[in-house]
Structures are given as C-alpha cells and as structure tokens.
C-alpha cells in the first residue's frame, strides 16, 4: 500500500511542469519598473511607491526559499507587493488625520458634506441643492479617456479624497478587490463601505466638473 502510494506520488511529481527559476540578481532590472508603475497609481506619493517596491524586494529576498516555482517569479513578486500596498492602506487608516482631511472627514455623518449637496429639510428633502446638482458633461466623454490632461486631473481628484475613502476607492478600482475583502482588510462594516464609496464618487464627480468641465 505504501509503495503504491509512493509510486503515485512520484508520478504526480514527474508530470509537473518545469519549475520557474528564481534569479534575485536580475529582479531590479527585470521587474523594478513594472512594480513601481503598478504602485504609483495606488498610493499618493512617488516616495511611498519607491519604499513599497524596495520593501517588496527585500521581503522577497528574505523569503526566497519559500518561492516554489509554481508560478512565475513576476507573479510571486506582485503578490508580495499587493500585500504590502494593502498593509500600507491599513497603516494609513490609523494615522491621525491632517487638518484638510479633518475638514472633509471620513465616515462620520453631520460634517456638512451631504448637506451641502442635498437639501436637508422641507418637502424636497434629499433632493439636489440647485447650486450643486450635476451639470451636463457633453457628448464626447470617450475622447477624454485618451486625453492626458483629463487623466492628470482625475489622478489629482483621487489624491484629494480623505484617506479611508481613497483606500476604498483604490482597492476597488485599481486592485480589483471585492467588497468583503475590502471590509475585512480595512476593518469597516459594509454600511461604512457604502457611505465611503458614495462620498468618493460624489467628491470625484464634483472635482472633475469643477476642474475639467469648466476649462
């Protein structure tokens, strides 16, 4: 019985595809730029991106024996990087807010953000305030997607989101994580998530309308 099992085990091992190589000496040259580019849009500052890439390489080097060659070196490095970025969001979440973030603060109700956009009393309660309702954006929106100036403005708008809203937004759109994962990693409830998602969208929309449509 034991011999048969061992034979099956050996067969399984023999039919496995060739292992991927691991060459730490050429990591920086081969993957430095792509890891950096991946990180750049997911954090606020270039220095943060540099640090995260460096941490990724150092952690990979330390754990290079755990690389089993089942996936490529590149996939393995990207997985380490993704975990580092999520850690970075989590750490930022616990940092005290700066003054400008406090003024546009977070999940709390009653900071005036929603009240500025929507009427908070009367028969039309919950409907747009005339001054803040969305304007018409015209027909050629798809052209904007090819326009570098537009993408630069969009990036700047994301940068101005409060920390938590920004973390939610980036995990959702740039890391393609699902809601349950985002809630778990950032330690928030689904209803916190919906509030943050909504406010991010309202804020980005308004920021684009102000800075891009008015040009």
């Amino acid at each position: 019985m034991i011999t048969i099992n061992r034979r099956i085990f050996n067969m399984a091992e023999n039919t496995q595809p060739a292992k991927h190589p691991c060459n730490p000496e050429s990591w920086v040259e081969n993957y430095g730029d792509s890891l950096y580019r991946y990180t750049l849009v997911r954090v606020n500052k270039p220095e943060e991106a540099e640090d995260l890439v460096q941490e990724t390489f150092f952690a990979a080097l330390k754990n290079k024996n755990s690389f089993r060659g089942d996936s490529s070196e590149k996939t393995w490095l990207f997985n380490i990087l993704k975990n580092k970025i999520i850690d970075h969001y989590r750490k930022n979440k616990n940092k005290p807010l700066t003054a400008s973030e406090l003024s546009a603060s977070e999940t709390e109700e009653g900071d005036g953000f929603m009240e500025r956009l929507f009427k908070n009393q009367g028969f039309m309660e919950g409907h747009w305030n005339a001054d803040n309702r969305p304007g018409k954006w015209g027909q050629n929106l798809n052209d904007a997607l090819e326009n570098n100036e537009f993408l630069t403005i969009l990036k700047a708008c994301i940068k101005h989101l409060p920390q938590m809203a920004s973390a939610v937004f980036r995990m959702k759109y740039f890391m393609e994580e699902d809601s349950r994962f985002i809630c778990k990693e950032l330690d928030i409830t689904p209803s916190n998530l919906w509030v943050l998602a909504h406010r991010s969208k309202l804020q980005i929309r308004e920021c684009l309308e102000k800075n891009w449509m008015d040009k």
Binding site: A144, F150, L154, K155, F174
Partner: peptide, 10 residues
Amino acid sequence: FIDKALEKLG
C-alpha cells in the same frame, strides 16, 4: 464614465 476612466487609469 468615471468607473471607465478609473479602469483605464489603473
């Protein structure tokens, strides 16, 4: 549109 633009940016 913003969703599409973010996808592209990513």
